[in-house]
Each structure stands twice: as C-alpha cells, then as structure tokens.
Design a protein around this nucleic acid. Structure first.
Lengths: 228, 228
DNA sequence: CGCCGTTTTGAGCCTAGTCAATGTACGTGG
DNA sequence: CCACGTACATTGACTAGGCTCAAAACGGCG
C-alpha cells in the first residue's frame, strides 16, 4: 500500500510495525534470500530439539507443528497455511516439530541471516514481527479453546476458523488434515471428533460428503452460537 | 551489554535478535520513554477490546492476563512476573484483559512510539522481539499442558514452573495468586486444584503451610516424573 | 478382489466437574 | 476482646462429558 521505494532509516517511520502486513508469499527462490523446498506428504521439516538453523514460510499445502509428551501424547499447536511463517525461535533449538500434512512447498530462510535481513528490509522485519504477534494471538485464542471449551464448541470454532482460512466462499472446503490431527489440535480423541461431526451433520449444521474430508457449512449462525 | 552508543543502521549487526536478551527491568520513568505506574490489588490495566495504546513491562508484583467466554468461563493465558513484557498487539485492540494479582507496578510504553523506539534502539527492538518469541514459546508449552496433560501433570508442571520463576532456592515460595487463578490457568476447577494439591501434600511431594499460599517442594524428582 | 489406512459406531468406564457443606483466616465494628 | 461477615480453601457425594476398548464400515489402490 505504502511506498516500497527506499529512503528509509530514520525519517519515514516505516508503517509502525504492528500493522497487518500484506503477506503475499514470495515466489520460491526470490525474495530476501529464501530457498524454495518441496515436501512430500508426511515429510518432516524439523523435530523438537533440532538446531533452529532455518525458519520457514508456507507457499502451498499445509504444515502441522506439534509437541509430544514422553508417552506419545501429541498436541498440534498450529496448522500453517500458505503465507504463514513458522519455526522462528528465540533460542537455538526448535521447540516443536513440523511435518507436511500433504504435499507442500515452503521457503526456508537462514535464521542467522535474520539480523541482516531485518536491517536491510524494514518491510520484511515488519512482516516477521506481525506474523509472530499474530501467532501469539492465535495461540492465546487456542488456549481459551483448549482450557475452557466443550467438544462441541471446540469443533464449531475449528470449522469456522478453517472455513475462514481456506475457503473462498467460507462455506465449502476440503480439510487438509485427518481426524487424528484435528483431535490432537483440539485436545480431544479421534472418536469424539468423529462423533461430534456426525452429530453436527445430523443436526443440519454441516454436510459431510461420504468422501469425508470435504465440509459444507449449512448453518453458520448455529455454529457461531455453539462457539460461545 | 553492548554499545548503546549510536552509529547504527547498517554495519554493526546488533546481536542477531533471537538471542536471549538480559531483560533487567528499567527503573521507572527512565529507559526509552516508559511511564511508571503503581497498581492496587485487583486493579485492571486494560480489558479485551480496549484500544491498545500502551504495552507494559512488569517491575514488581504480578499480573494476570486472561480471556472470557460469553458465559463467564475464564482462561488465564499467563501470569506476568517482574521483567516480563505484555500487552503488545498486532492489531489496534487488546486481545485479552490484564489485572494486578496483588499490589504491583509496571512501566507503560506508548505503542505508537514503538516504531520509533525500534528504529532508535536496536537493543530495545531485540528485547521486544525475544520477549514476544518467548511468550509464544510459553504459549506453545501451555497448549500442550491444556490439551494433553492430566490434572496431576498440570499441577506438577505449574509448581515446577512457579518454583523456577519466583523462588530463589527453587524450593520454597509464596504463590502470588489464589486457587481460582490457578484453576483458570490450568483448565481445571478450583476443587480439582485443591484436591490435587492436598493429594501431593499427603504423598509428601510438597508441603502446604496452613496459611496456604506458601509452598515447599519436598520431592522435586517425583514432581518431575509426574510432569510427563 | 482384497488389503490397509482411516473413519464411524457402540458399550462401558473413569477423570474431572457440579453441587453443597464445612473449615479457616482475617478484618471490622460493637 | 469477641462476634460477625466476607473471602478463600477444603472436603464430600454424586454426575456426566469425554475417553477407552472393540468392532464394523468405508474408500482408495495395488
């Protein structure tokens, strides 16, 4: 929107960061020194504890990032969709693991170049900063969901959120993840997810095609009410 | 630590942000244009939906930040202790409410000055960025707790975390919040918090003085094991 | 066609929630 | 000084929402 032309540092007050930046994903291989990568279904980008050498931006497909407890219980803290940044850490190690949900592509940025990128390109810095703040906001909303919502409310929130993020008309869309991913994201079991979805379908709130990754939202109002 | 003297923009590569910054709270009224504020017990700093004119750093005491559902269910997403930043938003509005747990004091920074502060003072920028990333990490850990841990595990995590954050010897400390705050932080009820703590006490894991805000950790190992 | 990964459905159980009462600390005013 | 009120914490009895275990249905694909 504003001038992307230079003449930067002190005068121009480059759109106080904290404003929502546009976030168009860059074409792979271009932009401030990112490297394009293609990922196969289920492929792991990094694991918890790995050295955080890169951070990433999704170009196509979807990524799940998650943590595990010692006995295998899993919490998926976010699904990352095109445009989203993820994997940027305060410390030296990744604090969660990341895998492609299906085939996907991302741009990888070297973390140690971050300081330089930020000096060179205030717009990039603002994008990173607001992306980070937005992740934090999403995390905060999600804590409310995990700590205080019922199974029905969790699924209503989830469906509305996905509709908004991946559907053009916000009514019909294809879920990029399977039931167990949804369960591990919402703090439920796969059985409860399944049962609740069928229950929604029976009540006419949504339509589940038998193929069953596709969702049609029939009664958005009712879902909103459920969402509390 | 490093030069606070100028000569900035392009050359100096000011400690690749993402490194843990020292975070000593500034003396009120000083630092990059912060304003000191004293808060009485229970006093509200801002509410969800308020215009995000300021963001804050705790100097003394403790702050709870939380969200509410329409029917009053509450999720406390964090307790902020001395040194912590909070209340910085990507959008124009605060996305959660914040109140003092007891008497407390904070430094308020004008959000619209943030852009300028960041230009002027790379060290300040790095502190803000790593504080934000650290909040995100805490939020991610907390999502795992909320979504996948049992009541016992939640309380074990909580006690170990508080011990580390507020106790010098990591064994004896006074909780700055009441049971209902703990419950709303861990996604439990006050009764479950109470029952689980007495159960810990009976098993000799902790000691609860009858005055009862004070905790002594007797068997840290056992708590760690419980924590999963 | 038959296998395999995934989803759905069913039956029973358990953890944590609900409702209710009692206990304890503390401050205020008679 | 003590009676009372208020706020917070503990304990108990019962309930229920979501989990576990188990089996069946479905769809894609070799």
């Amino acid at each position: 929107m504003q001038a992307q032309t230079a003449t930067p540092t002190t005068k121009i007050a480059p759109i106080a960061f904290g404003l929502r930046a546009p976030m168009a994903p860059r074409t792979p291989g271009r932009g401030p020194v990112g490297t394009a990568m293609a990922l196969a279904k289920g492929e792991e980008l990094f694991a918890e504890g790995d050295e955080a050498e890169y951070f990433y931006q999704v170009v196509s497909g979807a990524i799940r990032s998650y943590k595990l407890l010692s006995d295998g219980r899993r919490q998926i803290d976010a699904f990352h969709l095109p445009g989203d940044f993820f994997g940027l850490e305060a410390g030296a190690e990744h604090r969660f693991s990341a895998e492609a949900l299906g085939n996907a592509s991302v741009v990888a940025y070297r973390r140690h170049r971050l300081g330089a990128l930020i000096e060179e390109d205030p717009a990039f810095r603002d994008r990173i900063m607001s992306a980070t703040l937005r992740s934090l906001e999403r995390a905060q909303d999600h804590m409310l969901l995990l700590g205080r919502k019922t199974a029905q409310e969790k699924l209503a929130s989830f469906l509305l959120d996905m509709a908004q993020r991946i559907s053009e008309d916000e009514e019909h869309f294809e879920l990029p993840m399977q039931r167990s991913d949804i369960a591990d994201h919402l703090g439920l079991t796969i059985e409860t997810v399944s049962r609740t979805l069928t229950q929604f379908a029976r009540s006419g709130l949504i339509e589940l095609l038998p193929a069953s990754r596709s969702i049609a939202i029939c009664n958005k109002m009712a879902l909103r009410n459920l969402d509390a």
